[in-house]
Design a protein around this nucleic acid. Structure first.
Length: 410
RNA sequence: GGAAGCGUGCCAGAGCGGUUGAAUGGGCCGCACUCGAAAUGCGGUAUGCCGAAAACGGCAUCGGAGGUUCGAAUCCUCCCGCUUCCGCCA
């Protein structure tokens, strides 16, 4: 959510910013018009209430009449308020000035490429074939029991998932994160609060019938919720959390040739990093998150490239965002494996997360998120990059002590 | 899942229909006392919004959302959370 005062004072800056995210800049004028109307209604109704209070002490009949007037005004005020809030919540966060200009993912910038792509003297298989041959992944039973988009991991793939999680948690503890396993379900106010229902209701969240709960799409939701409606002490910042959860996404509709397999699924495991910090430090911590992501993939020896997202591909909440894409030989293309965003005070304002220094005035914190490890996609990358001519798959060296084996073969 | 109780400011804790944004104590911040400190005394100590250049004025907020009333922290309904007892389970 943007700062109302900032919009009032800098309408042109806001227009320019949201236009760069492909959002209609006229929304700003529409917002200001309704905001103006709202202000007038507030003034009128507050004056009447003050009158009512005064009069009620010695003239109850007159106060009763005022009450009726107030009710009429309050109805109008409520309408204006809902409309105003709706527009406000539809405005995306503004991109930083140094974010590349661009319309969509085609305009993202490759900052660097790290690691050498493997060269095979045989025809590389994709993870589907490897998974089947090595008895690691079962899609058909997943579809039978839970529907398409669900799968069972089997045998070494199970151990690989747990080994990766353990490995990553060791790194994150070292980097000063508090490690957590979060709930897989959260109340609606949280999965809307972090903006995961941006366009219309229930876009990609599974909701539980008859209760105010939905399956989270990422533990960003549960991590951001930890300090909602709190005022943190300045000295306690930054707060760095790394949370494991299962993630659930409906992903209804097709995504073409990459729909098959583990790349886009309805349920997966993920460790997410989340930082609450002082506004002046968020750019520093964004770099920190990107560094950790790169450290993980460097150590796993998986070739990747770092992308800086252009304004048009930033999404609703981010002021700046980097993705890591791993090389996936099975498709002969890069595939997204992490994403880290600086959401500045956009989430904090919506979730009401502030900090205060001694008795000074409080202010909104900045929040950042980044993928530490999204399991299925990393499993794809490992299977495909580490495959051998004989059909077996070697394990990254750093994982071996977590796995208890160094190779998967039949 | 059933029953009962509870939810007030940074904390503890009063208030249970009307000058109560909220007694009292603690904490914290000033000031005084002191060579300095402790103790003591005095003063201050919420947030959001609207209006004002400002001083300041107004409105809202006592878990959340509604309702009753001229008026609600106080009465009613629903929801959330906590505690205790019973049931059930890993």
């Amino acid at each position: 959510m943007l700062d109302i005062n900032f919009i009032r004072q800098n309408p042109d800056v806001v227009k320019k910013g949201i236009a760069s995210k492909n959002v209609n800049p006229d929304l700003v004028d529409i917002f200001l018009a309704i905001d103006d109307k709202w202000k007038k209604l507030v003034k009128n109704s507050e004056e009447l209430k003050a009158e009512q209070k005064k009069v009620g002490k010695d003239n109850i009949d007159k106060a009763k009449k005022i009450k009726i007037e107030i009710q009429e005004l309050e109805n109008l005020l409520m309408e204006a308020e809902i409309e105003r809030q709706k527009i406000l919540e539809s405005l995306p966060n503004l991109p930083f000035n140094d974010v590349p200009v661009g319309k969509n993912e085609d305009d993202n910038i490759v900052i660097r490429e790290v690691g050498a792509k493997p060269e095979f003297d045989f025809t590389a298989k994709d993870h589907l074939e490897l998974g089947e041959n090595l008895n690691l992944i079962e899609f058909e039973i997943g579809a039978k029991v839970s529907g398409s988009g669900f799968y069972y991991l089997k045998n070494e793939a199970v151990l690989l998932e747990f080994g990766l999680i353990r490995y990553v948690f060791d790194i994150l503890k070292e980097e000063g994160f508090e490690i957590l396993i979060t709930p897989d379900l959260a109340r609606k106010k949280f999965y809307t609060g972090t903006g995961y229902l941006p366009k219309g209701p229930e876009a990609q969240i599974y909701e539980i019938k008859d209760v105010d709960l939905g399956l989270i799409a990422t533990s960003e939701i549960t991590l951001a919720g930890i300090h909602s409606d709190e005022i943190l002490e300045k000295d306690d910042l930054p707060k760095k959390y790394a949370g494991f959860s299962h993630c659930f996404r409906m992903e209804s509709g097709g995504y073409g040739k990459y729909s098959k397999g583990l790349y886009r699924v309805n349920q997966f495991s993920k460790v997410e990093m989340y930082i609450y910090c002082l506004p002046e430090e968020s750019e520093k911590f964004h770099k920190h998150l990107l560094d950790i992501e790169e450290k993980i993939f460097k150590s796993l020896i998986i070739p990747y490239q770092v992308l800086e997202m252009c304004a048009g591909d930033l999404g609703n909440q981010a002021a700046k965002k980097y993705d890591l894409e791993a090389w996936m030989p099975g498709r002969g293309a890069w595939g997204e494996i992490t994403s880290t965003s600086n959401t500045t005070d956009f989430q904090a304002r919506r979730l009401n997360i502030k900090y205060r220094e001694n008795n000074k005035k409080s202010n909104f914190v900045h929040t950042l998120n980044g993928t530490a490890i999204a399991l299925p996609r990393v499993i794809i990358a490992i299977l495909e990059n580490y495959q051998q001519k004989d059909g077996s798959v070697l394990m990254p060296e750093v994982l071996q002590k977590y796995l208890g084996f160094n190779k998967i073969s039949r």
